[in-house]
């Protein structure tokens, strides 16, 4: 399973049935387009940390705004391992 697919799965889990796969485009903004409030975004980040075995830095928590950006951060972290 690719990073993008895993992230999409986690977003669907956090959204609790309020989103469909079709909405989860790489450029989709977590807040404005997917409707994830700040708490839901925090939940998503923790689930992603668990899933990929990484820990986001304080700066990353504030800068990750789209699915694509999240995938980019995670892939660069995994590559550096």
């Amino acid at each position: 399973m690719t990073t993008t697919e895993k992230i999409r799965g986690l977003i669907l889990k956090v959204a609790k049935g309020k989103l469909s796969q079709e909405a989860l485009k790489p450029e989709a903004r977590l807040s404005e387009e997917l409707g994830l409030d700040s708490l839901a975004q925090s939940e998503l980040l923790v689930l992603a940390e668990d899933s990929f075995g990484i820990k986001f830095t304080h700066d990353e928590v504030w800068t990750v705004a789209t699915i694509g950006q999240m995938v980019e951060v995670i892939d660069s972290r995994l590559a550096a391992k």
């Binding site: 700040s38 708490l39 975004q41 925090s42 980040l45 304080h58 504030w62």
Partner: peptide, 11 residues
Amino acid sequence: DGNQVFMFAMR
């Protein structure tokens, strides 16, 4: 810092 606290508490 709401986000930081949420992530800490959730873990």
